[in-house]
Amino acid sequence: MSKTGTTTTADTVSPEARQRQAHALEVSGWGERFVFLQPHNLSFWVYVLLTGIGAFQAWSFFAPTTGFYADGFAVAAVLCGLCGLAWFAWFRHIDRWERQPGRLILAALLWGAVASTFGFALTANNAMLSIYTKLFGQEWTADWAAGATAPFTEEAAKLCGFVLLMGLAPRLIRTANDGLIVGAFIGLGFAIFEDFQYAANSTARAFGTDPVGNAVHMSLTRIAFSFVSHPLFSALVCAGVIYIIGTVAQPRKIGRGVAFVAAGMFLHFTWDDAGGLGMGGILTFPVMLGSIVLGFTILTIAFRRAAPREYQFVRDILAPEVEAGYVTDAELEGVLEKKARKAFIKSAPHHKSRRARKHLRRAILDLAHDLANDKGADTEAVRHSRSEVERLRVKAG
């Protein structure tokens, strides 16, 4: 069966292309399933135990006041939940290479929301703040204690969950890009529940005076700055740890890993201690703005450094498809490299063609994912993806 622009057939794909594909699937873990229930895995029991402790702590924290401020708590839960859903959708959108299974993402969110927040960070932070107050006084504590505590306690709490998830999904969490994505979801779970906690506390501290108004005000304040928060910090820290330890899919780069871990903790410090760094005055906003710019600059660098490994996996997984003519070299590079992508889109003869080429890029990635899910076999899902690529190629002109 010949394909567009070539006389090569699927039956004559070289053994080398098949070998490249098989090796990429083995090393990358693309297409692997995630099983949470692993009774013979110690990581499973540690995860369950610590999440259970976090759930108990959360109940103990909120239960005494829920009956008094139920309306405010409900409003805060809705607002923080909607913000979390928006970020969840965005993170799933940018998870374009190895799509992490939904159950793994839920496990990451649950750890960040329950175990890290209430099982670790709340207790450790309160203890450290008490110590700082006794050692350095109220004024120093107000300016510096948050930044001297949270980057260590909270990032360590989130990282513990990441390590446990690596133990539960060793074939799925292997590259720096995996660390960025899974770390971001752990951070997202932490951020949602921390924002809700702040809103609940603001309602309770007002002794029931306008509970809904207080909850709305605090929730919106936290949401306004949610784009620079725990997802960014933990994404950098978790990616850095992958570089430090190295995996079969990610060569060890200790210097780069330490730099990303330090960057995540430093950004956490600058964000929490913006008031102290800004000397409590007009410099606070420039410090916050600088932290935002620096944070997204480093995050962009982290994704760019992680991308080449994922690009190579895509090339290897699709090697038989390119050789058989189902995908062209230009189309494949248009999926991966930024310059090639722009050139591929701009070379389209008209607007509809450019739009079709954008969809074609997604269809090619879908084909790679279907091949990974079916271990390179010629299944119905793979054939359907090939037909979509062919259909969109015709529309793209």
Rank of each mutant, 00 (worst) to 15 (best):
residue 87 W to T: 00
residue 120 F to I: 09
residue 159 L to Y: 04
residue 383 R to G: 05
residue 163 V to H: 07
residue 10 A to G: 08
residue 29 G to D: 07
residue 201 N to I: 12
residue 104 L to I: 14
residue 222 R to Y: 00
residue 115 A to W: 00
residue 350 H to P: 02
residue 47 Y to R: 05
residue 62 F to C: 06
residue 216 V to C: 02
residue 315 R to T: 08
residue 52 G to I: 00
residue 247 T to M: 08
residue 233 F to K: 02
residue 368 A to I: 13
residue 355 R to I: 04
residue 366 D to K: 12
residue 76 A to P: 09
residue 155 E to S: 03
residue 19 Q to R: 13
residue 324 A to H: 11
residue 204 A to L: 11
residue 54 G to P: 07
residue 382 V to S: 07
residue 13 V to P: 03
residue 260 F to K: 09
residue 203 T to D: 00
residue 43 S to A: 15
residue 12 T to G: 11
residue 1 M to I: 15
residue 261 V to W: 10
residue 128 M to F: 13
residue 266 F to Y: 11
residue 117 T to R: 06
residue 65 T to R: 09
residue 382 V to N: 10
residue 239 A to T: 00
residue 318 L to E: 07
residue 129 L to Q: 15
residue 207 F to K: 14
residue 232 L to Y: 00
residue 383 R to K: 12
residue 349 P to I: 07
residue 265 M to C: 14
residue 248 V to R: 15
residue 68 F to K: 15
residue 386 R to Q: 13
residue 376 G to L: 10
residue 39 P to F: 12
residue 183 G to T: 00
residue 277 L to Y: 01
residue 255 G to Q: 07
residue 26 E to G: 06
residue 74 A to Q: 06
residue 5 G to P: 06
residue 132 Y to N: 10
residue 45 W to S: 14
residue 284 T to I: 08
residue 234 S to T: 09
residue 109 L to W: 01
residue 24 A to Q: 06
residue 186 I to L: 15
residue 98 E to S: 14
residue 115 A to M: 02
residue 359 H to C: 08
residue 304 R to K: 13
residue 191 A to R: 04
residue 147 G to K: 02
residue 186 I to C: 02
residue 118 F to A: 03
residue 319 A to D: 07
residue 194 E to P: 03
residue 306 A to M: 01
residue 134 K to A: 13
residue 341 R to D: 08
residue 387 S to Y: 07
residue 280 G to C: 10
residue 193 F to K: 05
residue 288 M to D: 01
residue 155 E to A: 04
residue 100 Q to A: 15
residue 59 W to A: 06
residue 242 I to Q: 02
residue 11 D to K: 15
residue 362 R to P: 00
residue 87 W to D: 00
residue 53 I to M: 11
residue 305 R to H: 14
residue 172 L to A: 13
residue 393 R to W: 11
residue 112 G to F: 01
residue 245 I to T: 08
residue 365 L to K: 15
residue 351 H to R: 13
residue 2 S to I: 15
residue 161 G to Y: 10
residue 227 F to H: 02
residue 298 I to E: 09
residue 259 A to F: 14
residue 158 K to L: 05
residue 28 S to G: 11
residue 229 S to D: 04
residue 321 E to Y: 14
residue 283 L to E: 10
residue 247 T to R: 14
residue 290 G to F: 03
residue 206 A to D: 01
residue 253 K to T: 09
residue 96 R to S: 13
residue 172 L to W: 06
residue 302 A to G: 05
residue 133 T to D: 13
residue 329 D to V: 10
residue 197 Q to E: 10
residue 288 M to P: 00
residue 170 P to V: 05
residue 213 G to Q: 07
residue 5 G to D: 12
residue 298 I to M: 11
residue 1 M to H: 14
residue 270 T to D: 09
residue 340 A to H: 09
residue 375 K to F: 10
residue 136 F to N: 11
residue 341 R to E: 08
residue 384 H to P: 01
residue 279 M to C: 08
residue 139 E to L: 04
residue 313 F to N: 05
residue 327 V to I: 07
residue 138 Q to E: 09
residue 1 M to R: 11
residue 304 R to L: 09
residue 98 E to M: 12
residue 129 L to Y: 12
residue 290 G to Q: 09
residue 331 E to Q: 15
residue 291 S to M: 02
residue 30 W to K: 03
residue 21 Q to S: 10
residue 143 D to I: 03
residue 370 D to H: 10
residue 115 A to H: 03
residue 142 A to D: 05
residue 170 P to H: 07
residue 241 V to C: 05
residue 351 H to A: 14
residue 355 R to P: 04
residue 72 G to R: 04
residue 339 K to Q: 12
residue 258 V to C: 14
residue 72 G to A: 03
residue 349 P to R: 04
